[in-house]
Design a protein around this nucleic acid. Structure first.
Length: 303
RNA sequence: GGUGUCGUAGCUCAGUUGGUAGAGCAACGGACUGAAAAUCCGUGUGUCACUGGUUCAAUUCCAGUCGACACCA
């Protein structure tokens, strides 16, 4: 990390913990802007179910990567890394501190540490490999990968078709082993990074999640999902809050059941997020209700 | 009121020809390099409704009690 006087302040934490509000307060205090690192708030068609900042909040502080693409667009974590870095160059010309807020651990890490420079997936190859999986099962993918890249095969989660598919994609498009091309090193950034984690006791988080889901339904989640029914096959809609309402619209379950399922899925998502953020000890943790503590911490750290 | 069926994990339910029990979901823990709100892995947390009886041994068999449901009055 280079001491440039420029700081990217990451604000992470489980869904519904209160990241949006804290980030807006901080960004206002520093008269700065916010980059979202929420992989589902990118899509402009999805608002209620992704708990995007509302119009008033968006007017208070300039946000980036909120509704900037369509569910029909192809987007991925590498594009995010590249686009954020370009954006940051501009933002750091005007601000010493820029905030990045979100719950998508992989996307945050891509900006902070970088990811390796693999080719983008080729749709035809991905479709082919998916067909192999559907027709011949995960065992066939395992067999293919154990031939092409035994090193990666020995460490990868071999029951996970997504992981196998991606490794195979890279091996087949580059003609080289996936494992050989993974650097396991962080890219240098010309700004410093401060990571703030927000969390509250689990029972309180569960209460907040349940209240927020109820609020989404009151705000018209069902109508939003219904308007996207025709696009349910798109990856963007493989999302908590949408999948469950699709089941309701299919008459597979009742609306109350769908709402319960959303709450359950959201709790489980929050758990996975925390597993990611706890993996390293580079987050400093705060209660989202104590913004003054975060402010004084940042004042002390960012010089 | 009578008859029948049922009562097992947080939930839905299996099961034990008598040797204190196991699936799915939830929950808890974990992984994670272009699908990541995705995807995947691990862990059983239990007075087998209650009280007696028979038995070396009862969650299992018997009786009673309570509760649920169904049918008959």
């Amino acid at each position: 990390m280079v001491s440039s006087g420029k700081y990217l302040v990451v604000i992470a934490g489980p869904t519904a913990v209160g990241k949006t509000g804290v980030a807006i307060e901080l960004a206002k205090a520093w008269k700065s802007e916010i980059i979202s690192a929420d992989s589902r708030q990118f899509y402009h068609e999805m608002s209620i179910g992704t708990a995007k900042p509302d119009l008033q909040q968006l007017n208070e502080v300039k946000h980036h990567f909120v509704g900037h693409i369509s569910i029909h667009d192809y987007f991925n974590v590498s594009k995010f890394e590249n686009e954020v870095l370009v954006l940051l160059t501009g933002l750091f010309a005007r601000h010493n501190i820029v905030f990045m807020v979100g719950g998508s651990g992989l996307y945050i890490d891509a900006v902070c540490r970088g990811i390796d420079d693999f080719p983008d997936p080729e749709p035809e190859l991905r479709a082919y490999l998916k067909g192999v999986f559907v027709d011949e099962g995960v065992a066939k993918l395992q067999e293919m990968l154990s031939n092409l890249d035994p090193e990666y095969y020995s460490t990868v989660d071999i029951q996970n078709p997504n992981r196998l598919l991606r490794a195979l994609e890279v091996c087949l498009t580059t003609g080289k082993k996936f494992s050989e091309q993974r650097s396991n090193t962080s890219k240098d950034r010309n700004f410093s990074i401060v990571k703030i984690g927000l969390n509250i006791p689990r029972p309180e988080l569960v209460t907040r999640i349940e209240a927020r889901v109820d609020q989404m339904v009151e705000n018209g989640l069902v109508d939003e999902v219904r308007s996207l029914l025709a696009y349910r096959h798109l990856n963007a809609l493989n999302t908590v809050g949408y999948k469950e309402i699709f089941d309701f619209l299919d008459s597979k379950i009742t609306l109350p059941q769908a709402i319960e399922n959303i709450k359950t899925s959201t709790r489980r998502y929050a758990k996975r997020q925390m597993t990611w953020f706890k993996r390293t000890d580079d987050y400093t943790w705060f209660d989202p209700g104590h913004v003054n503590e975060i402010t004084s911490y940042l004042t002390r750290i960012c010089k």
